[in-house]
Write a protein that binds this DNA or RNA. Sequence first.
DNA 1: GTCTATATGAAGATAGAC
DNA 2: GTCTATCTTCATATAGAC
Lengths: 214, 214
Amino acid sequence: MQDQGVTAKPLTEKQLTVLLAASDVFLEHGFSAATTDMIQQRAGVSKATVYAFRTSKEALFIAVIEHQCAKMTQAVRNILPASGDLEGTLKKLGLAYLGIIFSLKGLALYRVVMGECQRFPALGHIFWQSGPATIVKMVEEYLQNAVQDGDITLQRTGTHLAARQFVSLLRGEAYNEYLTHPAAIPTDGQIERWVEQAVDTFLRAFRCSEKPAV
Amino acid sequence: MQDQGVTAKPLTEKQLTVLLAASDVFLEHGFSAATTDMIQQRAGVSKATVYAFRTSKEALFIAVIEHQCAKMTQAVRNILPASGDLEGTLKKLGLAYLGIIFSLKGLALYRVVMGECQRFPALGHIFWQSGPATIVKMVEEYLQNAVQDGDITLQRTGTHLAARQFVSLLRGEAYNEYLTHPAAIPTDGQIERWVEQAVDTFLRAFRCSEKPAV
DNA sequence: GTCTATATGAAGATAGAC
DNA sequence: GTCTATCTTCATATAGAC
């Protein structure tokens, strides 16, 4: 661990170089197939410098995933839907979220975490909290506002499940499709269409115009 | 490849032993972290027997994933919803599908494929076709029947997207949650609730009682 | 702190007996 | 076809100079 987490950790230039090189290599190859030689070469430093930053390959890998997850959390938390109406809010939020998870790095991070979370269970938890759990919580808040404004009713499912269903619709089958077809990422136009279709279906299922038949 | 695919391949007893042992090891550790020693020991045979079945670790891994995907396709195709009404059909289908993908092996297969589909792109394609694409096609057929019966209208999204949205709702956030928290699998009761909630939301969004406002 | 060079162990694959 | 024993390669990690 070595100074992870809350306490500040002002990385030196070389340390940052190592961390970024290790990120590239681990995100591309996963833990086991990546070698410290690759990382060393990519960073342009010697092996001793790599091991001066973290004392083992495993510790380096954990640092990389924690760093990537922290970056993702930050990106998700920075989403600030401007619009006042629910539809516009959900669309802005959806666009930003899909932009993150459908990026090359977003997809690669997901693949690596899935592949290694059996060996590193802590990383599975961290990823879950950083990504899905965070966006669901944010959606939940916006939905609760919309309930108070009378736009939608969530009595049938509860706020939490409704938020989860929205995020699932948002991600959609396209997520699995692109995860299993590496090297390709969707265009902005495709993402826009997915978002509109997800928001559309969600609002049809939860809009107040329908009777909230519990 | 060596006699994969359409042509029959009557595996000898030892070959099957090796294949099953390799399946266990690869599904637990992924490709790189698994060793031929583990497979050899688990199968109770010598290393020469392992290499007599497939000529390299990579070929053995491909055989394992193809076999697991074929088994999954078979399981999905065997789902035969009995009920005549749409709601019952979707529920039966959903229950069976979630039973497959939320099993220990189903979750493990997904993790391994995700982790290795960068190195083995063909396996990503195979998995996509075996799992998500297959279930979506089946849902599509049932939805089309329901449209002709006048139960639902899919003009807004088209049949294909509607089917994809249903499958996404079905899988839900729970899928990511259990993927990132290995060793745990949901109870049958939980799966039942997820299915009911997914079907409920889906039918609310697509039922004919709503005006198909294109 | 950083580099070069190296020790050490492990894993994929094979040779040769039966 | 199967087993025992082994070869060879390569990756993690360290020792020692600067």
